[in-house]
Amino acid sequence: MSRARTAPPSRLRSPLGRARGLGSAKEGVEHWIAQRITAVALVPLALWFVAAMIGVVGADYDTMQDWVGRPLPAIVLVLLLIATFYHAALGLQVVIEDYVHGELARIGCVVVVRLVCVALAIAGIVAVLSLALGVAD
């Protein structure tokens, strides 16, 4: 019972659970929490994104370069890319773990999905930042 006293109040895991890195389902609680945090972040980000996309319907190359490079769109797009691909990696992992049987194939699929999500997020962020910082063109 001293465990409850020694564990920092901000931590939801017991010291033993943290040391093992496993939960009751052999999986950490961090995945669940991160999925919810990114979900909450994506509510305003997604609504902004749709409104922004309506605003740039049919925009030509120069208009688009100018718009993405402006501070507000650039900042929100970077936040959107981080939250989106983090959330996507977590969600797709759950789907893979449900349907891909065989440990090697499952781990392989999760690793590939994570790498692709990280690569896409970085590609999108670099594109936005290059326009925001005037590196592109």
């Binding site: 370069q65 996507a88 797709l92 789907v95 999108g124 594109a127 326009l131």
Partner: peptide
């Protein structure tokens, strides 16, 4: 959710293209 993950690829393609050549 799976469809939106695929949509994310389009978003990145679009942004990279905008930062690239016309």
């Amino acid at each position: 959710g799976i469809a939106l993950s695929a949509g994310g690829v389009l978003l990145v393609w679009w942004l990279v293209a905008a930062a690239s050549v016309p």
